[in-house]
């Protein structure tokens, strides 16, 4: 465990240096974080100018969904996306064969692949997201139990998005040139609104198959106290199962790499 923390620390240090090598990144990242915040917030304000509730969600609750969306997205951009994206594309580790070096390390491959690159300026996004969540909290009556449930389900959401990204990245071992992660990124944008607005099959798909509902809607529901114990349990079980499936698939993918010609 200590060793893993030390590995994460050196990865963070090295990534920070890489990023600081490009001066403009600082200002650009700050600008992008502000734009994300502004457009996200306007997207809600404009809707709630017209109605008081969106599919049963009032402004505060929808703001909580947006906050969770921004927070999970920020954590993704902080470490998961930069790390896993190194596998993808024609410059990526699988296509180039530099994945060999990852396999040669005396440490867990999945761990290395998931934490090796940090985009440190995404902390701006984290800060903005926390501001939005705080703003949502200010408009509801927040109980300690709700906060606890929120933190629990937020963890579940983060585990779920990690599992999803790992699954999409594992598929790269079968088709290294195809940008699977883009597909997920595209779909994940839909998580900025409560998943209930998507009708019929699309809604079910987004709750249980590509579970953006579990990633953002459910934690926000926990914050506003609008969730049943059964749903909480189901969500957490889903997160754990998704992680197990993803790890299994990733192992199969690396075994495939280890039996393929190159």
């Amino acid at each position: 465990m200590l060793r893993h923390l030390r590995i994460i620390r050196v990865f963070v240090a090295a990534s920070t240096q890489q990023e600081l090598a490009y001066h403009a990144n600082f200002a650009i990242s700050l600008l992008n974080a502000l734009l994300k915040l502004a457009t996200g917030w306007l997207g809600l304000v404009i809707v709630f100018e017209q109605v008081d509730a969106l599919n049963g969600w009032d402004y505060a609750a929808a703001l909580a969904v947006l906050g969770v969306y921004l927070l999970v997205g920020a954590l993704r951009d902080l470490v998961l996306a930069p790390s896993l994206n190194q596998l993808a594309g024609l410059e990526g580790d699988i296509w180039q064969g530099t994945f060999d070096f990852v396999l040669l390390r005396p440490a867990n491959t999945q761990f290395l692949v998931s934490v090796r690159q940090w985009q440190i300026f995404a902390v701006f996004d984290v800060v903005m997201a926390l501001l939005v969540i705080a703003a949502a909290c200010a408009q509801i009556t927040l109980t300690a139990a709700n906060l606890l449930a929120f933190l629990l389900l937020l963890t579940g959401g983060v585990i779920t998005i990690y599992a999803m990204m790992l699954i999409f990245s594992s598929l790269l071992f079968w088709s290294p040139g195809f940008l699977f992660t883009w597909v997920f990124d595209g779909i994940f944008q839909m998580a900025r609104y409560p998943v209930g607005i998507y009708p019929g099959a699309l809604g079910l798909l987004l709750t249980w198959v590509i579970p953006i509902g579990i990633i953002t809607t459910v934690p926000a529901q926990a914050l506003t106290g609008d969730i049943s114990a059964e749903m909480m349990l189901a969500t957490l079980i889903f997160a754990v199962v998704a992680l197990a499936v993803a790890s299994l698939l990733f192992r199969r993918a690396t075994n495939r790499y280890a039996s393929a010609s190159s």
Binding site: R3, I7, R9, V10, A13, A14, R105, P106, A107, L112
Partner: peptide, 9 residues
């Protein structure tokens, strides 16, 4: 810096 990363791994 690469050496430092490898040292930790």
């Amino acid at each position: 810096d690469t050496f430092r990363v490898l040292g930790a791994i």
